[in-house]
Design a protein around this nucleic acid. Structure first.
Length: 168
DNA sequence: TACATAAGAATAG
DNA sequence: CTATTCTTATGTA
């Protein structure tokens, strides 16, 4: 697989793909995280090669996004390496949430016609495509943020960015 | 408002 | 089967 890194004020985004479509978008905020990410691939015996030229399209989308412009990554092709059928359904549903808007775990669960609120959260927690699949736009129904695997700081940052409360 | 508790769906071990 | 998870609703003080 190929990978590249994109820097932004809170750290970097690690992107990886094997073919045309993007598979991984992970938040990296320290050298240790980066090392650890490389080790995971090594453990799975997946060869990684740095090649930023294969991510032209993604880089453009991310730089637009971090500039505060409306960028939904909606047209970006994805390639899921992992995930149960249920998790993919949750991810695809979350992907429909428009830029700058939020949904609750509850409303997402109801769209998938069940009441397993926590299972929605659990599935979002497995999201391999941070930002591209906007799981940060899913919040608790009482208005609080809920959780976030990559850290609530990042979730807050992304939401403020989309509300145009911060400018880079 | 704050805290405990049950219910809820799906997954990992 | 049990424990765990990016939850919600209800009860009680």
């Amino acid at each position: 697989m190929f990978y590249t890194l994109i820097d932004f004020p809170l750290g970097s985004i690690f992107l990886a793909k094997r073919g045309k479509a993007l598979s991984i978008a992970k938040y990296i905020n320290s050298d240790q995280k980066f090392e650890k990410t490389l080790e995971i691939f090594k453990a799975k015996k997946i060869a990684l090669k740095y090649d930023e030229n294969k991510f032209k399209r993604e880089k453009e989308s991310f730089s637009k996004y971090f500039r505060g412009e409306k960028e939904d990554f909606r047209s970006l092709p994805l390639d899921f390496l992992s995930g149960t059928p249920y998790q993919k359904r949750v991810w695809l549903e979350a992907r429909k949430i428009p830029f700058g808007q939020t949904e609750t775990y509850k409303s997402l669960a109801l769209k998938l016609n069940h009441r397993g609120y926590r299972s929605v959260g659990q599935a979002l927690g497995q999201n391999p495509l941070l930002i591209v699949i906007p799981c940060h736009r899913v919040v608790s129904s009482d208005g609080s943020l809920g959780g976030f695997s990559a850290g609530l700081e990042l979730k807050k940052f992304l939401l403020r960015l989309e509300r145009r409360e911060i400018f880079l």
